[in-house]
Simulated scan of single mutants.
Amino acid sequence: MTDASLAPLRPMPDDWQRALAVVAHPDDLEYGCSAAVAAWVAEGRQITYVLATRGEAGIDTLTPERAGPLREAEQRAAAAAVGVPAVEFLDHRDGVIEYGVALRRDIAAAVRRHRPELVLTLNHRDTWAGSAWNTPDHVAVGRAVLDAAADAGNRWIFPELAEQGLRPWDGVRWVAVANSPTPSHAVSAEAGFEQAVQSLLRHRAYLEALTDEDPETYVRRFLADSTRLHSARFTGGRAVAFELFSR
Results as ranks from 00 to 15, higher is better:
174 W>H: 14
142 G>A: 06
174 W>C: 09
229 L>P: 08
82 V>D: 07
26 P>M: 05
152 A>P: 07
193 F>P: 00
184 S>V: 10
163 E>P: 00
31 Y>A: 11
44 G>N: 13
61 T>M: 04
96 V>I: 14
175 V>P: 00
212 D>V: 12
100 G>S: 06
34 S>L: 06
120 L>D: 03
62 L>D: 05
214 D>K: 03
151 D>T: 01
4 A>M: 07
29 L>A: 15
11 P>L: 13
243 E>S: 14
195 Q>G: 12
71 R>Y: 01
197 V>Q: 02
79 A>T: 14
40 W>P: 09
51 L>Q: 06
232 A>E: 13
36 A>I: 09
197 V>K: 05
59 I>W: 00
143 R>L: 06
24 A>P: 02
206 Y>T: 02
46 Q>E: 15
188 S>E: 08
86 A>F: 05
21 A>N: 09
113 R>G: 05
211 T>W: 03
93 R>Y: 02
70 L>I: 15
12 M>K: 07
95 G>C: 06
170 D>A: 13
107 I>L: 12
99 Y>F: 15
222 F>H: 11
113 R>V: 11
126 D>L: 15
88 E>P: 06
213 E>Y: 03
6 L>Q: 15
111 V>Q: 09
44 G>L: 12
70 L>Y: 02
185 H>I: 09
119 V>I: 12
177 V>F: 03
67 A>L: 01
33 C>V: 13
186 A>L: 04
11 P>E: 15
181 P>H: 12
121 T>P: 04
94 D>L: 02
34 S>H: 07
97 I>R: 01
190 E>P: 02
17 Q>C: 11
136 P>A: 10
120 L>T: 06
194 E>S: 11
234 F>Q: 05
